[in-house]
């Protein structure tokens, strides 16, 4: 029983990191209509940047964190302007292919320059663990869980209650009507994309302290995040959070009690079944 709770808690941490990737993906999808296959490389780039700052240059992780997040936001800003906006309305397939091209470009480049070297990791500055009703969880995991959930909560609140959030929902609902109402649609697109990549940056920063950093670091989170987005309802932050946490726990339990290789197979099968059962997502809401 204690073992199951332990796995479930670890799964919750894993799920919270998935959620960070998924909420960005769901916003980019819901608002810009881009199936953003390159979202995972932002996670990977952020992990490498974290490594460069913390290990190679000796910065404190707390100092590096805002730098990584802002840098990733800037990267998103450039990418939206250079790659996605010029494709405009040439369709979802074009945007998806462009995203995949970005994915291949960045991943190919990183593989060329860093792929041959051994996988690296960033050590977390705080040791120790927290005991909670007989189950221990390392401080690192607790902080990752809290930070990820807090960032998601702030985003969910902002989408619901701020002026920017209202504009975002209006654009997601109907871009043309939003434009007529005086909302600067391009401006909303730009900032939604920047926020999404910054969140992916935060996910990469946290992930870099858990797993070895390779050019393929972002692949698994991306695929799971896509599943979360679809099952949780495209554009729904709350749906993504619920489904993401649940999927993290399921995957962790399956890997713990079953076998590692089959756990992902089962997770993908769950995605397929859930999607078929509820074609519009579990929540079915937009943004």
């Amino acid at each position: 029983m204690g073992l199951a709770v332990g796995y479930a808690l670890n799964g919750l941490v894993l799920g919270a990191l998935y959620v960070l990737v998924a909420v960005g993906l769901t916003l980019v999808f819901g608002v810009l209509r881009i199936p953003h296959f390159a979202h995972g490389v932002f996670v990977m780039v952020a992990a490498y940047l974290t490594f460069a700052l913390v290990v190679a240059m000796g910065w404190n992780l707390l100092v590096a964190a805002p730098v990584v997040i802002v840098a990733l936001g800037l990267l998103g800003l450039v990418l939206e302007r250079v790659v996605y906006r010029p494709l405009g309305r040439s369709g979802e397939l074009a945007l998806m292919l462009a995203a995949f091209a970005v994915n291949q470009f960045v991943q190919g480049g990183f593989q060329k320059f860093f792929g041959q070297e051994y996988a690296r990791q960033v050590s977390f500055p705080l040791d120790g663990s927290v005991s909670l009703g007989g189950v221990t969880l390392s401080v690192q995991r607790v902080i990752a869980l809290v930070v990820a959930l807090a960032a998601t909560a702030v985003l969910a609140w902002a989408v619901r209650h701020t002026k920017f959030g209202r504009a975002t929902r209006a654009v997601a609902e109907d871009p043309d009507a939003a434009r007529i109402s005086g909302i600067n649609v391009d401006w909303v697109h730009r900032w939604v994309f920047v926020i999404a990549t910054a969140l992916a940056g935060l996910a990469g920063l946290l992930l870099a302290t858990f797993v070895p950093i390779t050019p393929f670091l972002g692949d698994q989170p991306l695929l799971v995040a896509f599943a979360i987005v679809v099952v949780g309802g495209m554009g729904s932050v709350v749906g993504a959070t619920v489904v993401g946490l649940a999927l993290g726990v399921v995957e962790s339990l399956l890997a713990g009690f079953g076998s590692q290789s089959w756990s992902s197979a089962v997770v993908f099968l769950i995605i397929f079944v859930a999607l078929i059962a509820r074609p519009n997502g579990v929540q079915g809401a937009r943004v």
């Binding site: 896509f226 679809v230 993908f268 078929i276 074609p279």
Partner: peptide, 26 residues
């Protein structure tokens, strides 16, 4: 899968593609 359309369909088949790849390997 064909109950879904366009992107939902793409992601549903993505799940199935990943599942089949896991079956081949597992």
């Amino acid at each position: 899968a064909l109950r879904t359309r366009t992107l939902s369909f793409a992601i549903a088949t993505l799940g199935m593609g990943l599942f089949l790849a896991n079956v081949f390997g597992g």
